[in-house]
Design a protein around this nucleic acid. Structure first.
Lengths: 212, 212
DNA sequence: GTCTATATCGTGATAGAC
DNA sequence: GTCTATCACGATATAGAC
């Protein structure tokens, strides 16, 4: 059984490579992979998971559709790679929660807006939120990563009854703002000065997170 | 012209109704049309616009797919008919905003939760929200109807600077709560007692809508 | 490594039999 | 009124030529 390349010579004995790793490992192309990822992020962010097609990603990246499959495999894997945001929130969150809880509302509001005002971090976040309401994989990302890890971290430092509940109320407000301002782009919220939002929202967060 | 039922007696003279309107007015079926609408609401609510198919609606309603087309025409029309909520918000809103702005935060929070706790009103709302982030027609419904008409009505009564902005901040919080509690079903928010939510959220709304 | 060609499926919508 | 049959289209994914 199992042809060894040499064999007896009876057939053409096309030497079928045996040990070749299944997925392209060398990655010679210049920035092809990165271009595809950037295009995927933009597409998922603009259209959400379902309405984004592999063809559309490929066209936006200027490559062939089969290449996307070649690099990432299935569509779900493209999505996962596209929204995988590398910033480590634990670090920055420590600075936000910081030493005491005085002024945590304002620091949190400002941190939240800074993340969303920066296009590099905003794009994958919009992609996740847009897709989370209709696609289960995206919902898992939102629930598991953003909410679980962030909320647990925040709730751990609170000194109020039902800290998890308080943290979720704060999060619900920020998610609502993100949707209306960055996804739905409802005016005048969409064009409002970030500082004017901080000014009004900070006391709310402060109350949820600290006031008994 | 036009046969009178008695006639001359030549035929069996089955008395054909004369004024019969073109589209099934009598609705002979038990509640076929209503069953389709209910199934459509459920499907749109569970899956969002894009992932809901005419075939799926038909199967859930126990009818043929072509019937859905026959009754409603296009998929967009089915959606429009399914989410068209008949409650007149202007009336109830008047009671919420009421005479003075004292306690408007609590009345608004309680009204908001009562609408979402009632399955009859919740289902089409979830359908709209689920679809709004990916489907333009649904976004139009949310933007134009819910936000425009409700927000304008609320903002008109406020006595603060930037009333529209204030009303949107309040709305963003309620939308965020609706998404986390009813769509994503994040715990413990999803199972929390409505009154405990009112208790914490009411002061926030009150401040946004009244405090200078 | 890159792309052409294609297999397979599900979609919305329509025409027409009964 | 209800359903069968079908069209035209776009989707994911794969096989294989160069």
């Amino acid at each position: 059984m199992t042809d060894s390349p040499g064999g007896t010579g009876t057939g053409p004995a096309a030497p079928r490579r045996r040990g070749r790793p299944p997925r392209a490992s060398v990655d010679t192309g210049p920035g092809t992979r990165e271009r595809i990822l950037a295009a995927a992020r933009a597409e998922f962010s603009d259209r959400g998971y379902d309405k984004t097609s592999m063809r559309g990603i490929a066209k936006a990246a200027g490559v062939d559709a089969a290449l996307v499959h070649h690099y990432f495999g299935t569509k779900d894997e493209v999505f996962a790679a596209a929204v995988e945001v590398d910033f480590e929130p634990a670090l920055t969150l420590s600075a936000v929660l910081g030493h005491d809880l005085d002024g945590v509302g304002e620091r949190l509001a400002r941190y939240f807006l800074s993340v969303w005002e920066n296009p590099a971090t905003r794009t994958p976040l919009i992609a996740v939120i847009r897709s989370a309401l209709t696609h289960e994989a995206a919902a898992k990302v939102l629930r598991g990563f953003v909410l679980r890890r962030l909320l647990e971290r925040v709730a751990a430092d609170l000194k109020v009854p039902d800290p998890r509940f308080r943290a979720e109320l704060a999060a619900s407000h920020m998610i609502g703002i993100a949707i209306m301002r960055y996804v739905l782009e409802v005016e005048p919220l969409a064009s409002a000065d970030p500082e004017s939002i901080v000014e009004l929202v900070a006391p709310t967060l402060q109350r949820y997170l600290t006031e008994a």
